[in-house]
Design a protein around this nucleic acid. Structure first.
Lengths: 344, 344
DNA sequence: GTGAAAGCGCTAACAA
DNA sequence: TTGTTAGCGCTTTCAC
């Protein structure tokens, strides 16, 4: 496959021993830069040379070293995304769509988990910036002032997602969590429900939905809304526990808004075990419209977020910027909708 | 925060304009190499100089360029992992544990999704190798001959996971899927079930469980086992559909082994809708022991895989290799267990 | 304990 | 269309 030179001889003093562009160029009888062009911008090179270089690549099994390429060109073709945890199924759609859109345009996604703790978020951010990606996508992150400063100083394009704010670092794709809280109150009211409750995770965005939900119910003249907060990430179990707790203090609630579909599944499970009819006695609304929501029994009414659209738009923002295209808008509100099914 | 030189002046002809080690060294009044040592191997530098360098770092907001560092040292402190899709919750535990173990030791995880198609797997593999990571973790991947050759040629440490094979590329952490199939047959037999069925995804590992399940039932003298195969990744919906289909042809089955917990949830949902009692008329066994399994109603009996242990061991293998430690064993069988709950 | 020189593998800039 | 030269920012090697 290779040549007469032994690996030991090839790796004179340093280097990994892998085939380099130099080697490929030598075999094809051209200068390294020509081999580089044949591979990256073949239109600039004669067809004959492209053929010879391609052949040399095939015969050596050459895989370009993008670390070196990135250093020389200051373009890594790498995009980093930061999520609290990949276990939370909420951002899954966004990450998948982001990955697909990036791969289709020749970029690669590097995923990092920050956890729900601030300290690790800063460490991860430094690790990310130190790789000089062409863009950074932040999903559901509340960034520390230090992180914000570092991001700004790095000059790397940043897309914040899953939220709207009046002070974005750079670009923004999201929706209003307060609007969600208010919309669900209106929806339940229109469905004849009057004794509302909410169960939500303790992350910042969920808290804003809770806040708005509470306020809107009050404004509508409804009785005080019991709110149960559970630790993020939310689980089926925390949903079950929360409903138990809720029924203890407010046995007469007739509707619950859960801050995730998984939580809603937990609530419905616990309701069934306790003989509480859904939707008869209790209406349940989820959040996220995960893939399983429509197939539950009863099918779950939930707030649908176009998670994939968020990922696609984030990819577009970053690729546009990386290719030097002019970006017209830097903020996109993807909105949301309430999908009515059998649980209300 | 910065100095008198404008960004424009600093970025002479090339370069990103970010603060470099050079700059830090100049501010601290030392040579660049000393600054490098102060940051990476402080024990080799006098305390006073370490202090001055640290100060210069703080005052400039310097973030090291690990692309350059990686090129010079041939060590990236980057580990790549490849999963079919992050939507499949099965590998989530592994990825999370892998990430945690790596971060704790100063490495960073780069996650790539290959999809369930071979063509993309090869492309992703090339993209990964081109970044020269210090290790590659393959999760549930059936690699093409080309991929295998590339991996071998790259010289990068590789850990294959979630399976056992007699011909590993390099290192291996997994368990026997055939053993799982056999064990579940024995388990159901011991529970008095005789008319077994199986519902599984069409990925390779699930197929091996199906095969072994089928064969073991036959060997035990049980009636022919109906096997329903659904497309991977498996969903709640495909579980519901599969049970409907199953009951059409074999209304008398008394136990179903599902190749994922999500599938099992679908089966239990459909059973409830149809008035089929679980476990009374139908025993249900899942696979994975995902977090929600214990909290379903009825609680799900399932095959428990220590997903996190797989991730931790994979991290250990790679870090050991990267630090040049001698690796005694290259293969670890983490086994599995059957967790009996209320669905059987 | 500190530094000078060289080079990792590639590509931007300039030249022919 | 092709090549020469000079770095990208860091760390290795070797010398003091």
């Amino acid at each position: 496959m290779s040549e007469d030179a032994t690996p030991a001889a090839r790796r004179a003093r340093r280097g990994s021993g892998a085939v380099t562009l130099h080697e490929v160029a030598r075999l094809a009888g051209v200068a390294p830069i020509t081999a580089s062009r044949a591979l990256n911008t073949p239109s600039q090179v004669s067809a004959e040379l492209v053929r010879r270089v391609t052949e040399a690549v095939a015969s050596t099994g050459y895989v370009p070293n993008r670390v070196a390429g990135g250093l020389a060109s200051a373009r890594s073709r790498l995009v980093a995304a930061m999520v609290p945890t990949i276990s939370g199924p909420v951002f899954l759609g966004t990450v998948r769509a982001l990955n697909e859109a990036l791969v289709a345009q020749g970029y690669q996604l590097m995923l990092g988990q920050s956890g729900y703790a601030d300290s690790r978020e800063d460490a991860l951010l430094e690790a990310i910036i130190s790789r000089r990606p062409d863009g950074i996508v932040l999903t559901g992150i509340t960034h520390s002032p230090l992180g914000r400063r570092r991001l700004l100083a790095s000059g790397i394009p940043v897309v914040e997602t899953w939220d709207l704010t009046s002070t974005p670092i750079d670009m923004l794709v999201g929706f209003s969590h307060s609007d969600v809280g208010r919309a669900v109150v209106n929806f339940l009211w229109a469905n004849g429900r009057r004794r509302l409750a909410m169960i939500g995770g303790d992350d910042e965005r969920s808290m804003r939905r809770q806040q708005a939900f509470h306020t809107a119910a009050q404004a509508a003249g409804l009785p005080a809304v019991p709110v149960i907060t559970v630790p993020a990430p939310t689980t089926l179990k925390s949903g079950r526990c929360a409903l138990s707790e809720l029924l203890l203090t407010s046995p007469d609630v007739d509707a619950v808004f859960c801050s995730s579909d998984l939580l809603a599944l937990g609530v419905m499970t616990e309701a069934r075990v306790r003989g509480v009819a859904v939707p008869g006695q209790l209406a349940v609304v989820g959040f996220g419209d995960l893939e399983f929501a429509a197939d539950l029994d009863p099918a779950l009414t939930t707030v649908r977020i176009d998670s994939m659209a968020i990922g696609r738009q984030a990819a577009q923002f970053i690729v546009d910027r990386a290719e030097g295209r002019e970006v017209t808008s830097r903020v996109v509100d993807v909105g949301f909708s309430i999908v009515q099914r059998d649980s209300t």
